[in-house]
């Protein structure tokens, strides 16, 4: 979708500039949950909090006071960010990441027969009557990515293995 060009105001005089910037356009504090509007903040229940902590593999709060603090913070955060829900974004494609979204880039990134010709060349056809494709199992040289001390940074290990001590029921 092409950008819509705005009408822009040329500022010719320095005095005009003073005037223009004299009046603020909005207040960022409006995003904060004011003390009085605290009741409008989204309510998070203790259950929800504990669920989120579990999902994040973070420990449960040590006492009621710590838990209340967590709930308050989360509530304030949600109030701060929640205002975007009022914005009408119908028909807008989400922007997931900054990357080349042009048609030319898509063509360049397309995986074609040519892209994979080396891999396909590593296959052979076996069989005289019942022809089947088989990938030739050659030795793969991956030294450039495999040659480093994989276990060298681990505090605990057992021989060539990493170790986890878990008494939890297994799946």
């Amino acid at each position: 979708m092409s950008a819509i060009r705005q009408k822009m105001l040329r500022v010719r005089n320095p005095a005009d500039l003073d005037q223009l910037l004299a009046k603020p356009t909005w207040s960022v504090e409006s995003l904060l949950p004011s003390k009085s509007a605290a009741s409008e903040s989204p309510k998070i229940s203790t259950q929800q909090l504990h669920h989120l902590l579990r999902l994040s593999a973070l420990p449960a709060p040590e006492n009621a006071e710590a838990e209340q603090k967590m709930l308050d913070t989360l509530s304030a955060q949600l109030h701060f960010v929640g205002e975007i829900q009022q914005v009408d974004t119908s028909g807008v494609t989400p922007l997931r990441a900054i990357r080349d979204e042009t048609a030319a880039a898509e063509v360049e990134q397309t995986i074609t027969l040519d892209t994979l010709k080396d891999a396909l060349a590593k296959e052979q056809v076996v069989g005289k009557h019942y022809k089947r494709i088989q990938r030739k199992i050659d030795h793969v040289d991956a030294k450039d990515v495999e040659d480093w001390d994989v276990l060298g940074s681990a505090e605990r290990k057992a021989g060539r293995f990493f170790v986890v001590e878990s008494e939890m029921p297994q799946e």
């Binding site: 902590l53 593999a57 001590e165 878990s166 008494e167 939890m168």
Partner: peptide, 16 residues
């Protein structure tokens, strides 16, 4: 200690 027990979440102690 252990990374996980039936009462605690796996890795939570280390991360906390």
């Amino acid at each position: 200690g252990p990374d996980g027990t039936p009462d605690s979440v796996l890795f939570a102690k280390t991360r906390g």
